[in-house]
């Protein structure tokens, strides 16, 4: 049975429109013109326990609305959502006791307190018993290598150190689902790798279900087996990351450098272009013609110094996907 079941989630907001000028402000006191904004039109999906889902989409697509509904802090206009048998917005307190949430740009620890004291407060807030707390804390401290940070007030930590402490804090009550919202935003390369490593371990070894929202496609590439792309309030795509990449990728490019004089390459389905440095660039559809076949054919027929495949940047791939579905931010 699915751990998370979401069906036809819909969320409409009424936004009050301000009328210009002083008279408009006075009129606004008595009567407000309202405009309805449809943040979510129809979002459905389900998730098994232990999955690691990447949740992506352009700004304003409905990502954070969905995550807010799933975590119990927003009620949808209509639709159904069941997580471990609970409806988040109806059973907020029971629901949030079973989930962990990490916001990349917001802290859940106390700014002026040493990290360990924040942990102890969270222990009491989540009603974690002492023995379990000690066990989990020791484990998280080791996994996230934060032993030396525990006695430092939060405000004195670097962003990377803080994020490691945030993840540990979110795990103290042993949630079965972990929501991560932009967990690597603003981090340096080392910290990013460390965060990804930990998330992967928690998911693989502890079986924690992870829902990751991010704009960093490297996070998705490194972590997510499954990706949901949301745009204009609907699910545009729900598939493995590889399939999404392949679809958006379209054509792959092969760059051939000749050892001697360049010779013409004429293969059906492959377009060529000579670059300024003398190399020849071939564009082809990798789904119809595997790259390795093309490479061995060219190597056999021509005097080749070097051949390499050029893939477009992952960001560019996703941007193309958004554009393809008209979901790019207007």
């Amino acid at each position: 049975m699915a751990q998370i079941r979401v069906e036809q989630l819909c969320k409409r907001y009424a936004v009050a429109e301000r009328q210009p000028g002083a008279w408009g402000a006075v009129k606004g006191l008595f009567h407000r013109r309202q405009r309805v904004v449809e943040a979510l039109k129809d979002v459905s999906f389900s998730l098994q326990a232990g999955e690691l889902l990447g949740f992506i989409g352009p700004n304003g697509a409905g990502k954070s609305t969905t995550v807010k509904i799933l975590s119990g802090i927003l009620r949808p206009t209509s639709g159904l959502c069941e997580i471990d048998g609970l409806t988040p917005w109806l059973h907020r307190i029971r629901h949030v006791a079973r989930i962990g949430v990490v916001f990349g740009q917001r802290t859940q620890l106390w700014w002026d307190l040493p990290v360990i004291e924040s942990f102890e407060l969270l222990r009491d807030i989540y009603r974690v018993d002492e023995a379990a707390f000690r066990r989990t804390k020791a484990e998280m401290v080791e996994r996230l290598r934060i032993e030396r940070l525990l006695d430092t007030p939060l405000r004195q930590l670097s962003l990377g150190q803080r994020m490691r402490c945030e993840i540990a804090a979110a795990m103290l009550h042993r949630p079965s689902i972990l929501f991560l919202d932009e967990p690597t935003i603003g981090l340096d390369a080392t910290s990013k790798l460390a965060v990804r490593e930990v998330v992967r371990t928690l998911n693989r070894e502890e079986g924690v279900t992870v829902i990751l929202t991010t704009h960093d496609m490297h996070d998705i590439e490194a972590l997510a087996e499954r990706v949901i792309v949301i745009g204009n309030g609907v699910v545009l795509r729900d598939s493995s990351f590889e399939a999404l990449r392949a679809e958006a990728l379209g054509e792959t490019r092969l760059v051939v450098e000749f050892a001697g004089a360049p010779s013409a390459i004429d293969i059906p389905g492959v377009s060529t272009r000579t670059r300024e440095d003398g190399a020849v660039e071939l564009a082809f559809d990798a789904r119809r013609m595997p790259a390795h076949a093309l490479i061995s054919r060219i190597a056999a027929e021509h005097d080749v110094a070097d051949i390499h495949v050029e893939e477009p940047q992952i960001e560019a791939v996703i941007a193309r996907f958004y554009a393809l579905h008209g979901a790019a931010e207007g």
Partner: peptide
């Protein structure tokens, strides 16, 4: 600031927090 969300994500009454 939207920080109220943080309180809603904890299993306690918001007034107590």
């Amino acid at each position: 600031t939207g920080n109220f969300d943080r309180l809603l994500l904890r299993p306690r009454a918001t007034s107590l927090q």
